[in-house]
Amino acid sequence: PSTSLFNQETLQQRLQTLIEGARESWTYAIYWQSSVVDFSGASTLGWGDGYYKGEEDKGKRKTASSQSAAEQEHRKKVLRELNSLISGSSASADDAVDEEVTDTEWFFLVSMTQSFVNGSGLPGQAFNSVPIWVTGKERLAGSSCERARQGQVFGLQTMVCIPSASGVVELGSTELIFQNSDLVNKVRVLFNFNNMG
């Protein structure tokens, strides 16, 4: 039963519960799933699932992005292609895909392609270790982790990675959110798959 509970549906519900039930306004939550990649037992963290909520202030949607017109066109093109591949419909039939793709939306989408060797990157450092909480643009920009620096470039002000039984929960926000034990405890309850039931 514990393995059947560990599927993408319940992951999505847990991520949603975590973000929607939080007092702070988190922009997204990602579950990085651990898997063993070779005989030496080395593991890697890859995309498990993610929940994107977006910025609290919808007005920020239009102003947050600072990238060039060419970059915005590239993002829209990628989104259009993905949309037509997923829905099977013509991209032009869906006006939503032609809306500006914000920095945090793009950061979230690009995250789906990423993975981290155990011990490297923000999620990789948190795995089998302690939570990592980075608040403030300066701290993110000065981090030794590329993902943290990347997050800052895409408008994040807070990034958190909390280890769980078989992966890492990452949260990001465009707001300044300071460390609190409530969130860490919630992650431990919601994502401790070994103790299901």
Binding site: Q8, Q12, W47, L79, L82, N83, I86, D94, E105
Partner: peptide
């Protein structure tokens, strides 16, 4: 194309559906 397998199909599908919902909720007058 070959890029799609990199993305988790369900995650992407959810993201696109929710994005559409969010954009629909944003008032055209704001």
């Amino acid at each position: 194309n070959g890029d799609l397998p990199i993305f988790r199909r369900k995650s992407l599908q959810r993201f696109l559906v929710k994005r559409k919902e969010r954009l629909t909720l944003v008032s055209p007058y704001s």
